[in-house]
Amino acid sequence: MVDFVNAMTSQGLYTRDELLPKATQAFHADFYLAQVNNGGHGQFIHNSRDNIDYALADVQAALTVIQAEPYTSIGEWLIAWCQSHRDPVTGKIALKTREQPDGLDILEFYAADKASPFRSVLGRWIATWPELRPVDDADYPEALRVAASMNPLREARQQWKSVTRLRQQTTDRFLVGVGLACVKIERPELRVEIGAGQGVEINGQKELAFHVHTNRGLNRFCVVKPDYAAAYEYIPADIPTRSSRAPVRSSRA
């Protein structure tokens, strides 16, 4: 079911509302299990991010139908806990990173999962769906591809996603700044990939610089500030040098 929902949303570009509600409920119930097993209920809340309300509603709906204890009770407790820990202004759930909701013995969940695996409980529920069409494992990828291609809005949505990506490249200040800085190098380079940022000392000042890989196969350090963007030569730390990094060129804004 996870593969099905992933394929329908990523390849078929169906929206949540266009899928069978039970499918997204089972999807989020499985996601819930994976997250709780990996890092507890706190991880489920954090990794759901802005989708938490939909994930919670789906998990609740699935557990209500399944009626398998102690999962259903634990799910009800989680919903109640989240409701009572919402910021009154933002509506977001107040929980710090790596913090766990208080008042639940997570060992109870793990013991239940060992005695009666939650995934098996889910599987038994899914098996009762009249909408289910059995497909051999070998035929499943092709069945997913066909189902994904049947979305009449897929082409328009693909184009919308493409335009959105191009629009971001042409209007995002960081991307435009990095691109300009690399283009202004003596032999212009095109930014191909932007990696992680790190604190780097440049001209005696600590700056947040980002690794940038260019189409010439070179690595640069790029900085985008309110008044300029600049690309710097990347010198690995193990090469001794008097001046650790020299500016290649910079574009000013």
Partner: peptide, 13 residues
């Protein structure tokens, strides 16, 4: 116009 028909601006899963 075509792109607007395919908008997925608010698309939670």
């Amino acid at each position: 116009d075509l792109i607007g028909a395919g908008s997925m601006e608010a698309n939670p899963l």
